[in-house]
């Protein structure tokens, strides 16, 4: 394409260096050079990275949901109906109103670890979830939520275990372990729970925490009961803690000071735990424990598996750490006979 003469003239004019244009050009160049200088100065890092990761730990505090001034108490109820058993146990402890006040927001930490049906006993039984949610709401709780960070896929676990449906039927909400629900936490004086992601969202909302777990055989730790149940509040690659299972269970029990724990021994998984998978792994024990002392509950629970307190090192370690007592008979202890309708 040919260049028109007038464009040529304009070009020439533009390239003529008047004083005004010269100063403008100098100012422009200087401003850019200065800008680059400032940008460099602002970003300058003479030492380089001082650690291997930028990720700083945010430390969060966890509350206490127990009543430290209330004498520890425990009720053991024999019976095959979970709903009646848990109602009777709470009645024996002074009524649910003693623990759940009007306006409370209650977290039911269930064991929903596996996507297996309730009959197999690997997860908290939905009847028990429904009964507890109803009891809390009747006692005036503003809100009840059910949560766990299961091993299997969370949605599948909540659905197949029947816990999700039971919770919603009774008026509770299910909180799923979404990635943004976790925050790093360090337990004071802990060896293991240090800057570890904890399922913080439900804990943060709760004014009361109730742990609800079945009694299960667990090859590594000996037994999975209410203390081991808090494992489901950990995130991250939590399985590394199996290297030191007794310490992690002890630290979990120190981390969560619950309002109550409910230990379900209606059917006990005697072998092949904690997954089970067959009805033949279960034995009928018709026993349900409600306690303000999780260690006492688990110490009693060990007997349902045919184990003594000495067989489970974490029980002694937890006692030393001040979690509670293994000598449950020293507590305000209620033992109720068969509950039938």
């Amino acid at each position: 394409m040919g260049v028109k003469p007038e464009t040529d003239l304009q070009e020439k004019k533009k390239t003529d260096l008047s004083r005004r244009r010269f100063l403008l050009r100098v100012a422009e160049t200087a401003a850019l050079a200065l800008g680059a200088g400032f940008a460099y100065y602002w970003a300058y890092d003479p030492k380089g990275p001082q650690s291997l990761s930028r990720r700083a730990a945010e430390l969060e505090k966890l509350g206490t949901w127990s009543f430290p001034d209330m004498p520890a108490a425990m009720a053991v109820v024999r019976g095959e109906k979970r709903q009646q058993a848990v109602e009777a146990a709470l009645e024996a402890l002074g009524g649910v109103g003693k623990f759940i006040k009007r306006g409370d927001r209650v977290l039911l930490k269930v064991n929903a670890a596996f996507a297996t049906p309730p009959e197999l006993g690997a997860t908290t039984h939905p009847e028990l979830v429904e009964a507890l949610v109803s009891l809390c709401l009747r006692a005036g709780a503003a809100e009840v939520f059910v949560a766990d960070n299961p091993i299997n896929n969370a949605e599948s676990c909540m659905r197949i275990s029947g816990i999700g449906a039971a919770a919603e039927r009774a008026g509770a909400r299910v909180l799923l372990p979404r990635a943004d629900a976790f925050r790093p936490f360090t337990l004071p004086d802990a060896q293991l729970i240090r800057r570890w992601p904890v399922f913080f969202d439900p804990l943060e909302r709760a004014t009361k925490v109730i742990g609800v777990a079945p009694v299960k055989h667990h090859n590594r730790s000996g037994a999975s009961m209410t203390m081991k149940n808090w494992y489901g509040l950990l995130g991250g690659r939590r399985n590394v803690f199996h290297q030191d299972i007794n310490t992690i269970v002890t630290e979990l029990a120190r981390m969560i000071r619950p309002t109550l724990v409910v230990l379900d021994g209606t059917f006990v998984m005697m072998r092949n735990g904690p997954t089970g998978g067959s009805l033949s792994d279960l034995e009928k024990r018709d026993t349900l424990i409600v306690s303000t002392d999780q260690l006492a509950a688990d110490s009693f629970g060990a007997s349902l598996l045919g184990k003594s307190v000495d067989d489970l090192p974490y029980l002694h370690m937890a006692e030393q750490a001040g979690v509670g007592t293994t000598n449950y008979r020293a507590l305000e202890f209620h033992e109720l006979g068969s509950q039938s309708s």
Partner: peptide
């Protein structure tokens, strides 16, 4: 000790 695989 570990046996996470066995547990699951």
């Amino acid at each position: 000790p570990c046996i996470v695989c066995e547990e699951n």
